Amino acid sequence: MKKLLLLIPLFMISCQKEKNVITQHANQDSTGNQNKPQKESVAIKVIENKPVTNKDEIIRTVDASQIPFILNENFTKDEQVLSLKITNYTKPSIKVNLINKNHLNLRFTGIKLPDGSEDGPLPDEISYKIKGKGEVWLFFSRNTMAEGASKGNFSVKVE
């Protein structure tokens, strides 16, 4: 029993020893400086093609080869609608962001897919799976369920 009492403190001391381990993370070089992963820089084009207007509808056509892009638009009437037609779309998904810095009464009212199906209304920022290949239509207009100014500048970013 006396031997056991002597062995317990010895056992506790031996269990508390820390091992000196040198680890080097994969994102550090030998001097300890971190190698930051570089982000790919993608140039985003600003589309400035002339729209086709039909009463209160503004129709813009953009080829999918120009993605990613930003489209700047200006509504001058309360009941205007922006219809953005993207031709030759072949990717499995699309990202769309309605940039509304002036807090206009606008909403992303819908999307029409190449297979003819439609969905909407949608939030200001979406990532949407695309069924089929062909034309994708994006629609933006005044939110009839809310109040506020619907005239002014806004942008649509498509990736």
Score class of each variant (00 low, 15 high):
Lys129Phe: 09
Val52Trp: 07
Gln24Asp: 09
Glu73Pro: 00
Asn54Asp: 10
Met1Val: 15
Asn54Gly: 02
Pro68Asn: 04
Leu10Gln: 02
Val21Ser: 07
Asn97Val: 08
Phe11Ser: 03
Met12Gln: 10
Lys55Phe: 15
Pro51Arg: 10
Arg107Lys: 13
His103Asn: 15
Asn100Thr: 04
Asn72Ala: 04
Ser155Lys: 06
Gln80Glu: 13
Phe140Thr: 01
Thr76Ala: 08
Asn153Arg: 11
Ile13Asn: 03
Thr109Pro: 03
Val52Ser: 15
Asp56Ala: 12
Asp119Cys: 12
Ile8Ser: 00
Thr31Ile: 06
Phe154Leu: 01
Ser93Trp: 00
Thr61Ser: 08
Asn153Gly: 08
Ile58Ser: 04
Trp137Gln: 12
Thr23Cys: 10
Lys157Glu: 08
Val62His: 04
Ser41Trp: 03
Lys129Trp: 04
Ser30Leu: 11
Arg107Leu: 14
Arg107Ile: 13
Lys77Trp: 06
Lys129Ile: 11
Asp63Leu: 05
Thr23Pro: 06
Ser83Arg: 13
Ala43Cys: 08
Pro51Asp: 01
Lys131Asn: 15
Lys131Asp: 14
Ser117Gln: 12
Lys50Asp: 02
Asn49Pro: 01
Ile94Asp: 03
Asn102Glu: 12
Lys45Cys: 02
Leu113Lys: 10
Ser155Leu: 00
Ser30Ile: 15
Lys55Glu: 15
Ile22Gln: 06
Thr87Ala: 03
Glu125Phe: 14
Thr31Ser: 09
Ser155Tyr: 00
Asn97Lys: 01
Lys157Asn: 00
Leu71Gly: 01
Phe139Trp: 08
Asn35Leu: 15
Ala149Ser: 12
Lys112Ile: 14
Gly32Ala: 01
Val136Phe: 03
Ile94Thr: 05
Leu122His: 01
Gly134Phe: 09
Arg107Phe: 05
Pro123Gly: 10
Thr61Gly: 03
Pro68Leu: 02
Gln38Leu: 09
Pro37Cys: 03
Lys17Asn: 11
Leu71Cys: 01
Gly148Met: 00
Lys91Pro: 10
Leu7Lys: 11
Lys45Arg: 11
Leu71Thr: 03
Gly152Asn: 02
Thr61Met: 08
Val136Ile: 07
Lys36Ser: 12
Ile47Phe: 09
Leu98Tyr: 00
Glu18His: 14
Ser30Glu: 14
Val96Glu: 04
Ile58Lys: 07
Val42Cys: 03
Asp115Lys: 00
Gly148Ala: 05
Phe69Val: 04
Glu40His: 11
Asn88Tyr: 10
Asn102Ala: 12
His103Arg: 11
His25Gln: 15
Lys17His: 15
Cys15Asp: 00
Ile86Tyr: 02
Tyr128Arg: 07
Ser150Pro: 08
Leu84Gln: 08
Ile44Glu: 07
Ala26Gln: 14
Met12Lys: 09
Val158Tyr: 02
Phe108Lys: 02
Lys3Gly: 10
Lys112Tyr: 05
Phe108Leu: 07
Asn49Tyr: 01
Ile13Ala: 09
Glu18Leu: 12
Lys133Val: 04
Glu40Thr: 06
Ala43Tyr: 13
Pro51Thr: 04
Gly148Val: 07
Leu4Tyr: 12
His103Leu: 14
Ile47Arg: 06
Glu79Ile: 06
Lys157Gly: 05
Asn20Leu: 14
Met1Leu: 13
Leu6Pro: 00
Phe69Ile: 05
Glu79Met: 10
Thr61Ala: 02
